[in-house]
């Protein structure tokens, strides 16, 4: 129920607070009543036909970096294990 899908805004209609998003090539009209300043090219989380929030590209990258960093220990472990064999 709370699932929401990231989709890219391809056009905006400010007159009725809607936008067209592209989801894997499928175009869908959604409401932008819940977010500020919807703009073409923004990635938004779509939930029951509404854009719930914008996604932050910088934060997504930061999280991925953290995950890869968090995994370093695993890599080191593998190296140690390989080294001891």
């Amino acid at each position: 129920m709370c699932l929401a899908i990231p989709a890219k805004i391809v056009s905006v209609d400010e007159s009725d607070a809607t936008a067209i998003v592209s989801l894997e090539g499928i175009k869908k009209k959604i409401s932008t009543a819940l977010i500020e300043d919807a703009a073409i090219g923004d990635y938004v989380l779509v939930h029951v036909g509404y854009a719930l929030n914008k996604l932050s590209e910088d934060e997504a990258q930061r999280t991925l970096d953290l995950m890869r960093e968090g995994g370093l220990l695993g890599e080191e472990l593998a190296e140690i294990t390989e080294g001891s064999q």
């Binding site: 990635y43 890869r68 220990l73 890599e75 593998a78």
Partner: peptide, 18 residues
């Protein structure tokens, strides 16, 4: 975008080890 990169198997394996 914002989905596939958060399902990366190699990163998952490293995280699991950590």
């Amino acid at each position: 975008k914002y989905v596939d990169e958060f399902r990366d198997r190699a990163v998952a394996e490293k995280l699991a080890a950590t």
